Amino acid sequence: MNTKDRAREIHARLKGRYPAPAPALDWTNAWELLVATVLAAQCTDERVNKVTPVLFERWPDIASLAEADVAQLETVVRSTGFFRNKAKNLKAAARRVVDVYGGEVPRTMADLITLGGVARKTANIVLSNAFNVHEGIAVDTHVKRLSFRMGLTANTDPVRIEKDLMPLYPRAAWGEINHFLVYFGREVCPARTPKCASCELNDICPKNGVGK
Rank of each mutant, 00 (worst) to 15 (best):
R96Q: 14
V98W: 06
V100D: 15
V100H: 03
Y101Q: 02
G102W: 14
E104A: 12
R107I: 00
M109K: 15
A110K: 15
L112S: 12
I113V: 15
T114L: 14
L115V: 00
V118A: 01
A119V: 10
R120T: 01
T122H: 05
N124Q: 06
I125F: 01
I125C: 11
V126D: 06
S128M: 03
S128L: 02
A130Y: 06
N132E: 14
H134G: 02
E135K: 00
G136W: 00
I137F: 11
A138I: 06
D140A: 06
H142G: 12
H142P: 07
S147M: 00
F148W: 12
L152N: 09
T153C: 11
A154W: 09
T156L: 08
E162M: 05
K163T: 02
D164A: 14
R171Y: 04
R171K: 15
A172T: 12
A172D: 15
A172M: 00
A173Q: 07
A173T: 06
W174C: 08
W174A: 04
W174V: 12
E176I: 14
I177C: 05
N178F: 03
N178H: 15
N178W: 02
F180Q: 08
V182N: 13
F184Q: 11
R186L: 10
V188L: 14
P190Y: 08
T193P: 02
P194W: 04
